[in-house]
Amino acid sequence: MLRLQPFELVQPESIGEVLQLLSTHAEHVRIISGGTDLVPNLKLGSIKGDVLVSLQRVDELKNLKEADTQLVIGAGVSLHTIATSKLVQGTVPVLADAVGKIASPQIRNMGTLGGNLCLDTRCRYINQSEFIRSSFGGCLKSDGDRCHVVPGGSLCVAALSSDSVPVLIALGADVDIIGPEGERTIPVEELYTKDGVAHIALSSDEVVVRARVPIPAAQTRITYRKWAVRKSIDFPLVSVAVRIDHIKGSPDILEDGRVVVGVLGPQPKILRLSSLQGQPINEEMAHKVAGIVSRRCTPLANVPYSEDYRKLRLAVEVKRAIRSLFI
């Protein structure tokens, strides 16, 4: 069986201890929560971890509550809890739906929101064993110095593959981050960089502690669509959240909207629909938005299935998403 390399596991019980551990341990310290992404990657040797700081026992990360117009979801809340919570289903059903589409029942039981937010980027050249990677000399993200997806490229383009991130961005969610300097809050989209090797814009002594999800107003409609080869287990190959806000009192007229696309590169792509303000939400708009998305999004050969097909698929999913929102 594929074995883990020895590491030291520390299991702090408070955020304070976590921060202390992160600041005292230097290289190859990794935060582990559910471990469903990290452990396979450690087994494959695609990442290294000498010290793992576990968040499993940090109970203060496991709160899920409604506060004013927000859902506040601790980073340690399990994906299963979010997908099946009556509170989430009642207030932000699209989030329950998207999280319910993640991987498999077991992985949703183990995985956490924090883990899904910080999910490592994926690429057919990195999610391989050490042996396979050695056979082609590795890549920018592991053991090598070249990119096989964009030959000559100097920035890793491994794909953001989280099912929750596009929806959270569409919802306008923020994340609270804690570090030695205290807490700060940033929009979810600012959590990601353009570099697939280090795509989380946190310093090594910071931790995502919770997400703040605005409960959508009555005139906001959001949906999430995922395409993968299988209906369970798989990461998305096409992933898109679509948000439509109509004008108060005129459910057929667009006030604002956005489309958030995953599985392109390390960052989600956000397309704002403000230029369509005042236009009727109808089939024509569905086509128009699909066209915009298709023009502005470029799937790469970082995950299986051809770029051309995924581009086409993305447009169809966007079109159908909008249809589903106004019908």
Binding site: N127, S129, C147, H148, P151, R230
Partner: peptide, 25 residues
Amino acid sequence: KHGPGLEGVLAHTSLLDYPIPTTLD
């Protein structure tokens, strides 16, 4: 062109990447 050295390397060597159907498929 893809990078060199990829000739003969299997693309799907796990039960994640080689998709055998689940109950739902």
